[in-house]
Design a binder for these strands. Sequence first.
DNA 1: TGAGAATGTAAAGGAAGCTTTACAAAAGAT
DNA 2: ATCTTTTGTAAAGCTTCCTTTACATTCTCA
Lengths: 74, 74
Amino acid sequence: MENRVEELRKNLGMNQEDFAKAIRVSRQTVSSIENGKYNPSLELAFTIADFFGKTIEEIFMHERRGRNEKELSD
Amino acid sequence: MENRVEELRKNLGMNQEDFAKAIRVSRQTVSSIENGKYNPSLELAFTIADFFGKTIEEIFMHERRGRNEKELSD
DNA sequence: TGAGAATGTAAAGGAAGCTTTACAAAAGAT
DNA sequence: ATCTTTTGTAAAGCTTCCTTTACATTCTCA
């Protein structure tokens, strides 16, 4: 799932470390999320969205479950 | 975190089993989420929201981090 | 009241999210 | 080019999410 965390963080002129402190996670967690290593928990997604004053949907892009794709054959 | 999954599911006249199949998780996962045993992953929260045609924020109620509460003293 | 359907719950295991520590690499500013 | 800041990444370990299997409880309704 794609996200705009890095973009929004940089808009505020913050580095990963200060942002991590602000949302109370480790800097590695911020790095991992920004680089798509894994998704945040729902709880953390809310915390991030609140921090930026946005909705989760404005920050995290969910891949829609393709009913027309070749996969998903059952 | 509170959620309206059970309410929305019942609005559609579905039982946990059929709902679980529709969103491709086990029935126990549905039960656990409805009863607040744990929160869904962000991915699953999106799947559930999409299924109901709602936003995550309309379904899952995040407890706002109380800046004015007695806790959180740093 | 008793049978079938729906839901709750528990145990055990795998997968994903998050942590700390530590070091390497990249980017910025002289 | 060198120094400093920022970011990437890896390992090990803990917690949370999700699974399958299985059984207990509650609900519905004939």
